[in-house]
């Protein structure tokens, strides 16, 4: 790892101050992606600003039909929270399958969303739940937040502080994990809310997470796995790598969507 200078932020405004002072600072929360990337010198920020000790960024609130999760809330906290399990069990399920137990004790929802890894789980949930990404500057719907591979709408000095969404009537998430890395080779989050059905796909798109119009159209007619019989998803913009071809992933999208609906209806 190259040299870096560590700063522990006491508040969001304190974190912004540290960001502004440096030409080359990165935010670290759980650090489960960033620290390994720094070890391999894929990332080499001059300054690191730690968000893990900012009380206002932690915690879960469920008020009526609105769920709010602080950005520095860990995967383990989301996975084991009784209110989330009641309001949106699909999200508990998703959080409990990220990485391994030790990674879940550190990794955070804000970090996952800000990094926008094309195979990360949370971006699919945010997009399907039509979540709002709250920063120190504004509120952005997930549909306008995720821009491409590791790219988001975040501007300089902008910090995700929380995410918020309306509890869906039904939701489900299923992924086909890579047998070695356990990242989603394809994962599908389906949500049925008052404005219809949304289905978001991770691990498959060349430009990261996306909504599948084919899956949404079929499930809007009937929210049952049978509605997806014979549905096919184009492989044009899907990833091909050593693990799977674009065509294989296109098939996985439909299979994972079916399983996600089974889970949502269970």
């Amino acid at each position: 790892m190259y040299q870096t200078t560590y700063h522990r932020a006491a508040s969001v405004s304190d974190a912004v101050k540290h960001l502004k002072k440096s030409d080359d600072a990165k935010l670290v929360s759980g650090g489960m992606t960033l620290i390994p990337a720094m070890k391999t010198r894929l990332a080499a920020p001059a300054d690191l600003v730690d968000l893990r000790h900012i009380p206002e960024m932690r915690g879960i609130a469920v008020s009526g039909k609105t769920v709010t999760i602080g950005a520095a809330t860990t995967h383990a906290e989301v996975a084991t929270d009784a209110r989330i399990a009641k309001a949106c069990p699909a999200l508990s399920h998703l959080a409990s399958h990220i990485g391994d137990p030790h990674v879940r004790h550190m990794g955070t929802i804000g970090g996952s969303i800000a990094n926008n890894d094309p195979a990360a789980d949370y971006p699919a949930a945010m997009l399907a739940l039509d979540a709002i990404i709250v920063t120190n500057k504004r509120e952005t719907p997930a549909g306008k937040f995720f821009k491409g591979l590791f790219e988001t709408a975040l501007k300089e000095d902008e910090i995700i502080t929380a995410v918020t969404f309306t509890v869906p009537a039904k939701s489900g998430y299923e992924k086909f994990p890579n047998p070695a890395s356990r990242y989603a080779m394809t994962g599908v989050f389906v949500a049925k809310g008052k404005d219809g059905v949304r289905a978001a796909v991770t691990g498959a798109g060349e430009d990261g997470v996306f909504r599948s119009g084919e899956i949404e159209a079929a499930l809007s007619k009937k929210f049952e796995p049978a509605a997806l019989e014979g549905v096919s998803v184009p492989s044009d913009d899907l990833m091909t790598d050593i693990h799977a071809s674009a065509e294989y992933r296109a098939n996985l999208v439909v299979v994972m969507a079916k399983r996600a609906v089974v889970r949502a209806n269970a």
């Binding site: 522990r8 650090g31 620290i35 390994p36 070890k39 730690d50 893990r52 030790h102 004790h105 550190m106």
Partner: peptide, 23 residues
């Protein structure tokens, strides 16, 4: 996971955390 220790009562990978983060 050979580096797993408990930090504030929870299992974490000590090879992926800075000592400064754990202070």
């Amino acid at each position: 996971g050979a580096c797993v220790v408990h930090m504030d009562g929870k299992a974490v990978k000590s090879c992926s955390i800075l000592a400064a983060q754990a202070s």
